[in-house]
C-alpha cells in the first residue's frame, strides 16, 4: 500500500478541500485582510504536499501533474509581467490603471487583486515542484554524478 495509513488518508481527504478553500480566501482577500498572494500560494501548495505525503506521488500528480505545475509557474510569472506592462499603456511600468472601485470591497484597488492571484499561482506551483523534486526524484550521490560526467 502506497503512502501512509488509512487514518492519515481519510483525514487528508477530508481536510484537503478546506485547505485549498482557505488558501484561495487568503489570496482573494489579500488586499482587505492580512495575507496575500505569497501566503495563500504556500497554503495551497501545502494542500498538494499533504496529498503527496499521505497518498504517494501518483494521487498528487493526478490532481496537479508536474507538467501542469511547470505551466502554472511560468504562467504566473508571465501574468505578473503582463499586468506590469499593462500600466505602460497609461503611463509607466506598474502604473495602477485598473478601476480602483470602492475601498473595502472585494473588487477594488485596481491591479493588486490580479497581481495577488498571479503570485499565488507562481509561488504555489513552484513550491510544489520543489517538494516533488526533493521527495520523488531519485537521489544520486555526487560521486556517481561526477563519475558519469568523467566517463
Amino acid at each position: 500500500m502506497k503512502g501512509m495509513t488509512l487514518i492519515v488518508k481519510t483525514i487528508t481527504d477530508f481536510v484537503v478541500g478546506f485547505i485549498v478553500v482557505f488558501g484561495a480566501y487568503i489570496v482573494l482577500y489579500g488586499h482587505l485582510t492580512p495575507g496575500g498572494g505569497f501566503a495563500g500560494g504556500v497554503i495551497i501548495a501545502c494542500a498538494f504536499i499533504l496529498l503527496m505525503l499521505a497518498h504517494g506521488k501518483d494521487v498528487a500528480y493526478s490532481k496537479l501533474s508536474e507538467k501542469a505545475a511547470h505551466v502554472l509557474d511560468s504562467a504566473g510569472a508571465l501574468a505578473f509581467l503582463l499586468i506590469g506592462w499593462f500600466g505602460v499603456t497609461a503611463g509607466f511600468f506598474f502604473m495602477n490603471t485598473f478601476g480602483r472601485g470602492e475601498a473595502f470591497r472585494l473588487l477594488s484597488s485596481g491591479m493588486i487583486l490580479p497581481l495577488n492571484i498571479a503570485i499565488a499561482f507562481k509561488v504555489g506551483s513552484s513550491l510544489f515542484l520543489v517538494f516533488s523534486a526533493l521527495a520523488v526524484f531519485r537521489r544520486r550521490s555526487f560521486r556517481a554524478m561526477i563519475e558519469d560526467e568523467l566517463a
Binding site: 492580512p34 496575500g36 472601485g101 475601498a103 484597488s109
Partner: peptide
C-alpha cells in the same frame, strides 16, 4: 490605491 491592507 483604495486598498484596505496597507501591506498589500
Amino acid at each position: 490605491t483604495y486598498c484596505a491592507n496597507i501591506v498589500s
